[in-house]
Design a protein around this nucleic acid. Structure first.
Lengths: 207, 207
DNA sequence: GTCTATAGGAAGATAGAC
DNA sequence: GTCTATCTTCCTATAGAC
């Protein structure tokens, strides 16, 4: 019945939202079910009608976080015209990742911030989805390299991890009222493709 | 008496090491004083002779983590010959940061992984040291730009945060038996300065 | 479906013997 | 300085009324 619109489904969604928010702010262990219940305007005991444990609740939040960012990046790629450059495709993926992380964000950023510190069972359960998302990026980068848009000697695994790190870390510093997400994505890609050194190709490179 | 070699000081250091290790693995909230005591071969109650609370213990671990990486990067800069290029200086700083994070690492990586999720009091206490470390990087990058080694239109604040993100994230993926830290640092700097695009300046650029 | 009440356990911290 | 024992509090989870 996922996604149905019964009252139960709506309450369930409200709890999940509250959990994502609270987990993101405080982390898994430091979040109590009372915190979540308060954020969802309920009593602690009532949560158990919808979720069997704190761990299961976290599992769903983490899963939804990865699914959202995965779907967002995938969509960004499908919406591109067939003939756009590899740089455009990567810019689009970077932008989509940042949007999901920083704007649509409690689920995805809970995922980023807490993945390392959940109970083993939750961690294990979640690994497959993480890998699937990593595979999407592998594919994007590999294609760019095969087309010759990325230098042949770039280590794609290293590049991917550095890029994910640079992007994911933005949850720690991003301020909505400063630079726009789109501007950040553009600058990331410009530095990435053309380098920060003064000898790099100039100006119109990112147009 | 910090750094003295009395028995008390040695026990204190042993507890701190155990705490850094355990906090890094499990996070602040999920770590119990019993965990720390076990890792230090003591009983829980005995910890209180040396530290007044779990929060104070975390404060010291976090402080030591930043101090170590700050000192390491500073040392890397002082040891360079006066005439090395900006790229060399940054490579050296990147390398030092990674070494502290990945090799000498429980204090620094506890810091990276848990900074967002400690009690407010601990967080507040720690902000100054974080800022001082950020200032060191600001200075390194600004100087490189002033010398003309970084393109004039690079946003240094953004660059710094992206770079810290890319480096710090390595605690999540680094495997000691794969690529060496030195090789990672070199590749990071090569991609960073010259870009990943196929049009970038070739080969000897990083020599 | 949501509430109140509470069981059962573990956590941080303290007291006092040695 | 370190131990054992314990206080107090808070948390997850369950039971049963409504």
């Amino acid at each position: 019945m996922t996604g149905s619109n019964t009252k139960s489904a709506r309450t369930r969604a409200k709890i999940l939202d509250a959990a994502a928010l609270t987990f993101r702010l405080r982390g898994y262990a430091a979040t109590t079910l009372k915190d979540i219940a308060e954020a969802a305007d309920m009593q602690t005991g009532s949560l158990y009608y919808h979720f069997e444990s704190k761990a299961k609740l976290m599992e769903e939040v983490l899963d939804k976080g990865i699914r959202e960012v995965h779907a967002g990046v995938l969509k960004s790629q499908k919406e591109l015209a067939a003939d756009v450059s590899a740089e455009q495709r990567i810019l689009s993926a970077v932008h989509a990742h940042l949007i999901l992380l920083l704007k649509n964000g409690d689920y995805t950023s809970t995922n980023i911030r807490n993945f390392g510190q959940v109970p083993d069972e939750v961690h294990q359960h979640h690994i497959k989805l993480r890998k699937a998302y990593a595979d999407l990026w592998r594919k994007i980068l590999r294609q760019a390299q095969q087309e010759g848009a990325l230098a042949a000697d770039i280590d794609l695994a290293l590049l991917r991890m550095l890029l994910m790190g640079a992007l994911n870390w933005s949850v720690e510093w991003y301020q909505p009222d400063k630079t726009s997400i789109e501007a950040i994505a553009q600058q990331v890609c410009r530095m990435l493709f053309h380098g920060i050194g003064s000898s790099r190709p100039l100006k119109n490179a990112s147009a």
